[in-house]
Amino acid sequence: MNEYKELTRQGLWKNNPALVQLLGLCPLLAVTATVTNALGLGFATLLVLMGSNLTVSLVRQWVPKEIRIPVFVMVIATFVTLVQLSMNAYVYGLYQALGIFIPLIVTNCVIIGRAEAYASKNPWQKALFDGFIMGVGFTLVLVLLGGIREIIGNGTLFDGAELLLGDWATALRVEVVQFDFPLLLAILPPGAFIAMGFIIALKNAIDQYRAERVAKPVKAVTRARVTSQ
């Protein structure tokens, strides 16, 4: 059980795919203009990550070392196609909003990175859990970034949530601030880079603050000089 705890810590904070490994930045920055989009892409990535980790872990005994990367990519591509077709069928509005970034999940480095670094070396239970927790870590950052950008750039939260969750979700829409002239930059790609930079800086600041609190002040030892110069 201890390993699962460690995996959780790694995926959510210490080795967070978006904040620390800085993987999958392309979808991270491109689709996080609203919380809904961020959540949609986060779920899609989470599903693909779990599926691919599970499969890669199950077949790891029979995949020759030399051709493992193409095999992983095919496995990932299969799951992405599954997710893409399901989204096309069930959440068509969101499918259109996310556009090219759904098929592009294939190229998301988080997925191939976890397959190569973890799933291909560990039993399926752990691999599945690793995929889950890494996906959750990625989704959380996506949602946080989406929330910040949506509030600054649009003044709302969960705008268009009905695309993802069905008609009842129109009630989720929160008008946080009423802007006459919203800060468009936050919605545009540069806003994503700037906001992401601030989030990473905040994470590092928290880490530093914790490290300083944990570290006990070392008592300086004064040594008597025994040799003369």
Partner: peptide
């Protein structure tokens, strides 16, 4: 540039 992109009218 931030202002020009964000508030083109003003």
């Amino acid at each position: 540039v931030l202002l020009l992109i964000s508030f083109p009218v003003q």
